[in-house]
Design a protein around this nucleic acid. Structure first.
Lengths: 144, 144
DNA sequence: CCGAATCCTTTTCGATACTG
DNA sequence: CAGTATCGAAAAGGATTCGG
């Protein structure tokens, strides 16, 4: 994208990320305060991103999310939803029907992560083939 | 969705992500082919993002990366670097000095992930405070 | 229907010691 | 310097059972 150069692809974008990394270094790189660890570790776990995406279009009930992500266990669904609620990314709404129904919705904060998350997902989709090719090449030229 | 209401912030962006999710559903949501799982699980692990960022500015040697990320063990550094090489995100260059030195560099593919990754990192940085506040509120109103 | 509690397996990770 | 090998601890995850 942007100015298409011949041969020497990119290199220009994302100067900021490296610079920010340098900043972190200066302050001793405190793991507890590093947002990469504190936040990315969370949204990067096995189910979080999928759950967020499944709530992108509309609020959904517990069982509805479970249907959308068939191979998640109830335990992990409960746990991940609670973590997301704790972080303020989703809200939980209990309706006093019987049996009770519970709906989860993205909060404004949760909705705000969809955009950067989408960037990464679309990157993953578009590069998935390249990555699989690279894996095959690597495995082919590596010993048993 | 859409109809931009006052007070009700955003909602409009990222229609594509939810739609893409719907697409996946139609094909049975094959976990093995889902790029969210195949790729995000990788870059979302404990060290991958940090290593990619540490290589953003320039190629670095094994020990240099280890200095930049002080609390990574040699084992995990080796392992994560190898996984990244396998996925084609970084390249490995051995210089026949003695003792040998090895430099790791981002490949074009690896550089291409920095931009979406930066979006997420900057989101994390800017929202870190909100998330911590939400955590405190949640913990305060939850039982022992 | 939603979820808590328990048990158990798998995976991840770190510490340590060793090699070219 | 840049790894490899092995071990054990810890965390994550799944299956099952129970309860409001």
């Amino acid at each position: 994208m942007t100015r298409a150069l011949a041969g020497n692809l990119l290199q220009v974008p994302v100067p900021e990320l490296a610079d920010r990394f340098d900043e972190w270094q200066k302050f001793g790189f405190d793991a507890a305060r590093c947002p990469v660890r504190n936040v990315l570790d969370h949204i990067g776990d096995k189910w979080t991103a999928l759950i967020l995406i499944s709530l992108a279009k509309e609020g959904r009930r517990f069982s509805a999310v479970q249907r959308l992500i068939p191979d998640i266990s109830k335990k992990m669904l409960t746990q991940t939803l609670r973590d997301l609620e704790r972080d303020g990314l989703i809200t939980r709404h209990v309706f006093p029907t019987k049996p009770p129904s519970v709906e989860y919705r993205l909060s404004p904060l949760g909705r705000s992560v969809l955009d950067p998350l989408a960037q990464l997902v679309f990157w993953a989709e578009s590069r998935h083939g390249e990555i699989e090719d690279a894996r095959r090449r690597f495995d082919a030229s590596s010993p048993a």
